[in-house]
Amino acid sequence: MISNLQRENLPSGMSLKRRDEIYGYLFIAPQMIGFLLFVLGPLIAVFVFSFQDRNLLLGQITFAGIDNYQAMFKDALFTKTLQNSLIFTAGLVPLNVLGGLFIALLLSGNLRGMIFFRAIFFLPVITSAAAWAIVWRFLLQSESGVNTFLQAVGIDGPNWLQEPNWAMVSVIVTRALKGVGINMIIFLAAIKNIPQDYQEAARVDGATGWQVFRRITMPLLAPAVFLVTVLTIIGALKVFDTIFLMTNGGPSNGTMVLVYYIYYQGFQFFETGYASALSVVLFLVMFILTLIQWQLRRRFVFDEQE
């Protein structure tokens, strides 16, 4: 590359390398300024705020030491919301990742009508999350909607959104239905990129369908699986709208997740200092999960670059 560069006409007084550097800085400048202003700055601020007693309504700001963190340990609702966030994530990730993979594999053959089905599974993705939640809130009533169907096949459906455990199941499944389409598309793309001859060659060598899947398809899909898993985990930990619109965090705070609790503390109770301390916890959870992901990735995904 360097040898090529030397052939170009140099502007007076400035080396080509130098000029290129300036372009480099110029190109990344908007992103880096934005990063400092809207990501790094606020991230530092959230740590600072978490050591303050802040109240939005009173406008007061005083140093509070580790009061907020101490309060957190005594706050049963905090423990519960953290748990709920993890349960939600643990429920959503397998549904969305394996579900997406399963649907993508079903759709990847050359059968007729696959485009039609692909569109159906993608429909909820382009529907706004608010619309999706509103509709499902109505469908998950105790005496109507989904339960009408269940009754028709002889199942007495639960009162979905009024019993804590079922409410959690409901919001997880609603969210999964909303998001599985995007994962399906990513998987379909990845499957399409697998060279057909690999599988053909394996078949010629006498491998069974399962063996082909296990030894050829799956390893080649591993990067996509990781990408989708990471995206789904982030999406699961930041879920807000679905829960806000379907259950308001209830019943008995059974669906109150950490992000919702941050919203509640910050913008309903106006305790923005405490809300910042909760945000720090959310950050740490993300951070730990990210580290784990990178470790796993190193172990399981071999093919980084083609």
């Binding site: 019943p251 705070n253 109770f269």
Partner: peptide, 17 residues
């Protein structure tokens, strides 16, 4: 009231069955 509201309602949810 905002805090009482949330805490109280959460406790009452257990009654509605």
């Amino acid at each position: 009231f905002p805090k009482i509201d949330l805490a109280g309602r959460a406790a009452f949810d257990a009654l509605w069955n």
